[in-house]
């Protein structure tokens, strides 16, 4: 097994060693259900699709992704195991990627458990299957970015609570900058180019764009490069902060 695979495996099984995994999955499904059926009005709208679910996914992950990512590195630092991990004969990038992928796969497991929603709408009507697939891809991307942000923050501290709070705030900002209301606020005093740039880096902009059902090259490049950049930043953060 390659080094990142070894790290990935330990990290992924680690989620199941504590009640964390069960709590996380139950909360995720519970909230997903509430959002979709009560607040999203799946039945009232009388349309067989999952829009009402997907539009809440970023808000679900806003709190659940930081809960997954907060321990990634902060825990290693608190325990002191970071001293062993970073002196093993494996490149640091493998540890960063392995840990990130473990957290990401776990969030995908949570997403996969919502597949019965898909079956339900498929049974109730004739949904646009392409839009649903795009919705799942968009959701996976948002969770990837949030976990990337969370991993980087977690690398900077020993304290999981701090890692959680700071990550929620940063992810919230990453979402917020995509809303027309917020963009209008910037438009008042920034040139159009800067406003476009702010909208361009917002997770929400690309999420909604993907959600429309067309997987555009621009959005894929955005998500891929954002995750890559965040992993790179995590790597630098660990190198810089590991001894402190």
């Amino acid at each position: 097994m390659s080094p990142w695979g070894t790290i990935f495996r330990r990290e992924f099984t680690g989620y199941f060693a504590t009640p964390l995994a069960a709590v996380f999955l139950v909360v995720f499904l519970f909230l997903a259900g509430i959002f979709t059926f009560s607040m999203g009005g799946l039945f009232e709208r009388g349309q067989a699709d999952l829009r009402s679910f997907f539009q809440f996914v970023p808000w679900l992950f806003l709190f659940l992704a930081p809960a997954l990512s907060m321990r990634l590195w902060a825990e290693e630092r608190r325990l002191g195991t970071i001293e062993i991990l970073t002196t093993l004969p494996i490149p640091l990038s493998h540890a960063v990627v392995g840990k990130f992928l473990a957290a990401w796969l776990f969030s995908l497991v949570a997403l996969a458990l919502t597949l019965p929603l898909w079956l339900t709408v498929a049974w109730l009507g004739d949904p646009d299957q392409g839009a649903i697939v795009a919705g799942y891809i968009a959701s996976a991307m948002v969770s990837g970015i949030f976990l990337g942000i969370g991993g980087c923050v977690s690398a900077a501290t020993k304290n999981q609570v701090i890692a959680f709070v700071v990550t929620v705030v940063l992810c919230f900002l990453a979402l917020l900058t995509g809303f027309p209301l917020v963009l209008d606020f910037f438009r008042g005093w920034l040139p159009q180019g800067a406003v476009d740039a702010i909208a361009g880096v917002s997770v929400m902009t690309h999420f909604t764009s993907l959600m429309r059902g067309v997987v555009e090259f621009r959005d894929v490049v955005y998500f891929a490069s954002a995750i890559y950049g965040l992993l790179l930043a995590t790597n630098l953060m660990i190198d810089w902060r590991k001894g402190a």
């Binding site: 330990r10 680690g14 060693a17 504590t18 325990l79 002191g80």
Partner: peptide, 12 residues
Amino acid sequence: YLPEGAPAYPDM
């Protein structure tokens, strides 16, 4: 290497 305090993953 045995670091100070012999750290290890407690849940394994």
